[in-house]
Nucleic acid binder design. Structure first.
Lengths: 345, 345
DNA sequence: CTGAAAGCGCTTACAG
DNA sequence: CTGAAAGCGCTTACAG
């Protein structure tokens, strides 16, 4: 017993065409009739049918967000920021978690085509531009957030992962460490690759310093708990080395937390026995024992700007692709060996 | 240039009806023809049109999740669990953040009607059954998670907030505290109300013990950062009292973290100067300084079970409403004053 | 400013 | 097992 425009039209004494125009606030309806239609719709308790509208307009009032896992607070913040902007535009948000799997990512991006979504925002796990080109060919704008997809020019919000990682590692080196352990995220995607390059950049000017790198398999597979465990395991592996590093750099938030747990379990004090620093900050990092030093991405901005780029393109499909680059910012706390006041000691 | 069943039918030499049946794996198509249709669809690169299907079937291949804020890790875990189950059923998930506003909640629940969603899962901010009844009347099943909506019987996953809160507060009392500060979430919804009752239960048997309660305005409004600040501010307020409490109970994860920050800023040591315990556990609580004692809700299970209840009802709309009750579990760590081994000292 | 009518791309009852 | 045809509820070009 769903109400339709025919019901409203009957009630207001107008055609369905007029109902449509009135409810969509279109030009060409007398103010009086428009008001009457709106009143009728309200009186009858009209609810709308987005499927019918989407079918006819060939576009849904929704956007898609494809990330690896909302349970990671980094992505949760992105999701919140994107949803906020979408809501301002009267759009719903379809949330897809790929678990950092290329297969899932293709699947969901493909699903977006079927949903006739107005646009999609992705933090891509893969470096393959094909799905994005396909989206574009279907007239669906896509924005890439936080990572890079090569072989196509897309609207994107980029973070300088490389400089961020370099800064953290340089900071560790400035504490006098000569052997650093690195717990890396998947270097198959640009975030990981760039962070790895940043590590190498940092030691280049310091001939005596070396890196021992451990990279887990695709990080998010198995969920957030798995990444914690990975960090824990890799930290212990590095500490079990006969020639163990004196400082650890972890390439993301969860790995860093996991590593800290691993170090504790091994009876090692941070920073006295091993220094620790990470990439990605969290609001609770200053409450951790010890407070964690990390390169902070401006996460909320990344999400918001990605959404704004998307809506700018929806408004003007012809504009040239734009890349916004935002810096990561080193937040020095105590886990690197600095004093509480943030001084190198 | 979107492909339709007509294109596939032409390619495979069959009608659109047969294409539909073949691609939906329905009975009544010869295996040979079905295979031919599938091959044609693949060869042509058919993408589907969910809007058309939803319009015709009067139901979208999607479910809705209405929560207050994914940025709160509690809700992020719920979202992840729900999305996982939805994906198993080939459904997309529409994520709505209400910021704990009754108006937004009604808006989004209403939007779900327009989306012709197959079902919705809500952690409701309000105690008003009306929108859920409306959903039901429209044939859309709704499951209530983590909280209670009175005045209607719905499928729901309930946590015993009251017993959980009682346990935490009793534990604090067992440390010998006689004046407890309580930083409360919104008691307009059942989670808050029940947790408050649990606090009162706990002191009932202890005539010498009293509570000083502070309740913020609707908690999530203004986002997660605002809840942190609220916890911080209320903790300081309680500590500024001439007759200050010697222990604090915080009614959720973010308030507890905020309170800890407030206590630190006030130069107070936890648990030496004030004991602290919360409701809702997080995976990183054991890494906090000091490790936080809290009642843990089985969050992933709550999300998963809510989704399973939803799909059970979608499969059998006639079944009676079912409530699953899960317990909160006290996790004793050091912030309450226990030793590292979890003993009352 | 307003309406009649076509059509978006599916699914399904009906007929064969 | 297969097809012709109606119809889901909108929007929009066209005509007036």
């Amino acid at each position: 017993v769903r109400l339709t425009y025919a019901d409203i039209g009957r009630h207001a004494g107008v055609s369905t065409a007029t109902v449509s125009r009135a409810l969509a606030n279109k030009e060409g309806v007398s103010a009086e009739v428009a008001e009457r239609v709106r009143l009728s719709a309200q009186a009858l308790g009209y609810r709308g049918n987005n499927a019918a509208r989407a079918l006819r307009r060939r576009q849904a009032d929704a956007i898609g967000l494809v990330i690896s896992d909302v349970e990671n607070p980094f992505f949760a913040t992105i999701a919140r920021a994107v949803q906020r902007v979408a809501a301002q535009h009267g759009h719903a948000m379809l949330l897809c978690n790929t678990d950092e799997s290329a297969g899932n990512e293709r699947l969901y991006l493909h699903m977006m085509l079927g949903e006739s979504v107005a646009g999609v925002i992705t933090v891509p796990s893969l470096d393959d531009p094909a799905p994005f080109v396909e989206l574009r060919d279907a007239g669906i704008p896509a924005v890439i957030a936080d990572r890079v997809v090569r072989g196509g020019s897309f609207d994107s919000v980029l973070v300088d992962h490389r400089a961020g990682a370099r800064e953290v590692v340089e900071h560790l080196v400035s504490h006098g460490h000569e052997h650093l352990g690195v717990i890396m995220i998947n270097t198959a995607e640009t975030g990981g690759r760039e962070r790895m390059l940043g590590c190498r950049d940092a030691i280049e000017a310091h001939p005596g310093v070396r890196l021992t790198v451990r990279e887990g398999p695709t990080v998010q597979a198995g969920g957030v708990a798995h990444t914690w465990e990975l960090g824990e395991r890799l930290a212990r592996e590095l500490m079990d080395l006969p020639d163990r590093p004196t400082a650890l750099f972890c390439a993301n938030n969860l790995l860093c937390l996991g590593a800290l747990r691993g170090l504790r379990a091994a009876g090692l004090r941070v920073p006295e026995d091993v220094a620790l620093a990470g990439f990605d900050d969290e609001p609770f990092f200053d409450l951790i024992d010890p407070p964690l030093t990390a390169a902070a991405q401006p996460v909320e901005e990344i999400g918001r700007m990605a959404a704004e780029l998307l809506y700018a393109r929806i408004a003007d499909p012809g504009r040239v692709a734009r890349s916004v680059v935002v810096p990561a910012q080193l937040r020095v706390r105590a886990s690197c060996g600095c004093s509480a006041e943030g001084r190198v000691t």
